[in-house]
């Protein structure tokens, strides 16, 4: 067993990580609504607290005090399990993502690394955990015994599965450049060139593009939000869910958005690397947050400004465009690595 001190450090880091993640999820929902409103020349939620800042808290309380329905014909066990199955992996993934280098805290005699843990199969673990989220969605669709839910679940599984391919293939270029699966090492390798040795600049722009598109599809966001296309499927896989169970799907979706943004940052935008990080280590988390915020803004921007794809277009785009593009990127990265 590891020493007590180590366990304590992990516990504190995990607790802080959870709090930050949950806060980001809560305020992402508010920021999304405000931004959408801003883009559409409305006000958005601005009544609860200053600038509507307490809106997420009000929403949460309301969710708790709503009636929790289980439809009569539903498969009860799976129906209750499904939201937990999509929430748990969504909340776990952040454990592996480094948000900064080593910093010194007041009152501590040794530097603290700003990542919770680093395992030597980091990327695979993250991919596996994001893949686990599909089960929750499929089971929710199946267990509800509702046609919209079933279709939403099926669509979602087919979509996730198709775009996961492009996603895992787009990562291979990064692996060739970094030579490691460990996220901490991958970020450290991008430190060259005054902190701008990011993979997106160094031979992976194509991989970045493929990853960006498939990450939006993986998180079921517009313009790929077919599983919950309200004009045809009511609410998709969570049509029958109410109260906190619905909120769990909601939290899982937003946590997945944050994780996907953090992954894109880590793999392609140099994680916490940036100009001046070696001199002022505290700039690391700031850069990291800024980059993640950029992706989150992109999510909302896309939702506000792009129409939803038709289902066959979505599958065509994944299989006939992104997948070959990802393969081309693999070949291209390998060829470039012969010289550089």
């Amino acid at each position: 067993m590891p020493p007590f001190e180590q366990l304590l450090e992990w516990s504190v880091k995990i607790a802080v990580g959870f709090i930050i993640l949950m806060t980001m999820v809560a305020y992402l929902s508010l920021i999304e609504r405000r931004l959408l409103a801003f883009i559409q020349m409305r006000y958005g939620p601005n009544r609860v607290g200053p600038f509507g800042l307490f809106q997420p808290i009000a929403d949460g309380l309301k969710f708790i005090f709503k009636e929790d329905l289980i439809p009569l014909d539903a498969d009860k066990f799976l129906y209750v399990m499904a939201p937990a199955l999509s929430l748990v992996p969504a909340l776990m993934t952040f454990t592996l993502i480094p948000v900064g280098g080593e910093v010194t805290l007041p009152l501590l005699d040794r530097p603290i690394a700003l990542h919770i843990t680093s395992i030597n199969v980091g990327i695979l673990a993250v991919l596996a955990m994001t893949g686990m989220g599909v089960h929750g969605i499929v089971l929710a669709g199946y267990a509800s015994n509702n046609k919209y839910s079933l279709l939403g679940g099926l669509r979602s599984s087919a979509q996730l599965v198709s775009y996961e391919l492009a996603m895992s293939l787009s990562i291979i270029g990064v692996l060739i450049q970094a030579g490691s699966l460990d996220l901490v090492t991958i970020v450290e390798r991008q430190g060259g060139g005054w902190g701008l040795g990011w993979h997106v600049f160094w031979f992976q722009p194509l991989g970045f593009f493929v990853f960006l598109v498939s990450m939006i599809a993986e998180t079921n966001r517009a313009p790929f939000d077919l599983p919950e296309a309200e004009s045809e499927l009511v609410a998709g896989f969570h049509t029958e869910y109410s109260s906190m169970k619905f909120a769990m799907f909601f939290i899982a979706e937003y946590a997945n958005m944050v994780t996907a943004a953090a992954m894109a940052t880590t793999l392609f935008l140099g994680g916490w690397q940036g100009p001046g990080v070696t001199r002022w280590p505290w700039l690391g988390p700031v850069y990291f947050l800024l980059k993640v915020a950029f992706f989150l803004f992109l999510y909302v921007w896309l939702r506000a400004s792009s129409p939803r794809l038709r289902y066959d277009q979505l599958m065509d785009f994944g299989w006939k465009f992104l997948l070959p593009l990802a393969l081309v990127n693999v070949v291209l990265s390998a060829t470039l690595a012969l010289w550089f």
Binding site: F63, V88, P89, F94, T117, S118, K245, M248
Partner: peptide
Amino acid sequence: NYIPLLMSFGLASLIATTLLITS
């Protein structure tokens, strides 16, 4: 290094169960 993963799994499951029960 896998222990924190287990710990966060425990915490995440705990949160999920609490949410399921409270409502």
